[in-house]
Design a protein around this nucleic acid. Structure first.
Length: 258
DNA sequence: ATGGTCGAGTTTCGA
């Protein structure tokens, strides 16, 4: 089974690339972030004709998450299960959707950006991660993948120029600690062992020719529970997908299970 | 310190 995650930066403007990506890599399950569409706007026709079912949560123009699956789509949940009433419902709904696909629980996550360290959104980001962690602790004994745009660069190797990010979000000790907490709980980042080294990124800003100069960030991750991680046979970042006209600013991340 | 580029949807905001 092949599972992928991709921040598409608008599903409607990227639908042709999404369909080509699914076909090119023979993907069974695809988690999407930043779909930037309300549910009724999602371009379903081509996806359904390719055999994919879709679980979707999107309520505003800049967030939105989805799980596409051609190996079954069961027990769809939106937001954090068992934690009703936390935060702003519309925000939460647009940032997490989970489904069981071929026996694996896949959560498509768009972790809040945080904006600036002195912005209320930064606190919201840390709170959101703490809530996710609480929920994720309950899922550790089953094959579970927490996939998506974490908006955290866990190490300095994941940043093209750490000095330039000295006062920015994504690299602060509190964000990195929040990420590490999932690893402490037993989740494994299953992609890095197959894509080692510095200067291996998943996101390049659109401006200043950041992609052409490989000045990016590694912020998209697949965290697997132990029962998930032990099934992983390979992983790669589809860097080529970031090239050319009409690309998202993120590259897809792909994981293979036995 | 600023600006550069996208996407959504109206004009500027979020990333």
């Amino acid at each position: 089974m092949r599972i992928a995650t991709w921040n598409v930066n608008s599903l409607r403007s990227r639908i042709a690339r999404v369909e080509a990506f699914l076909e090119r890599h023979d993907v069974d399950v695809l988690a999407l972030q930043e779909t930037k569409a309300r549910e009724e706007q999602v371009p379903l026709m081509g996806l359904q004709s390719m055999g994919y079912e879709v679980a979707y949560a999107g309520t505003n123009q800049w967030n939105g998450v989805a799980v596409l699956s051609r190996v079954g789509l069961e027990d769809v949940e939106v937001g954090f299960p068992g934690q009703p009433g936390w935060g702003d419902p519309a925000e939460s709904e647009a940032r997490a959707v989970g489904a069981t696909c071929g026996g694996v629980r896949v959560w498509s996550l768009y972790v809040p950006n945080g904006r600036k360290v002195d912005d209320p959104h930064y606190v919201y980001k840390l709170d959101w991660l703490a809530r996710l962690r609480e929920a994720a602790q309950e899922w550790r004994s089953t094959p579970t993948a927490l996939v998506g745009d974490w908006n955290i660069a866990p190490t300095d190797e994941d940043v093209f120029d750490p000095k330039q990010f000295a006062t920015s979000t994504h690299v602060t000790p509190r964000e990195r600690a929040a990420f590490q907490a999932f690893l402490d709980d037993g989740y494994v980042e299953v992609v890095r062992p197959h894509t080692p080294g510095p200067e291996v990124y998943t996101y390049w800003d659109y401006y200043r020719q950041r992609f052409e100069r490989n000045r990016g960030l590694r912020i998209d991750f697949v965290l697997g529970s132990a029962p998930f991680a032990e099934r992983v046979t390979g992983a790669f970042i589809d860097r080529d997908e970031r090239a050319g006209q009409g690309a998202s600013d993120h590259a897809p991340v792909v994981v293979d299970l036995d």
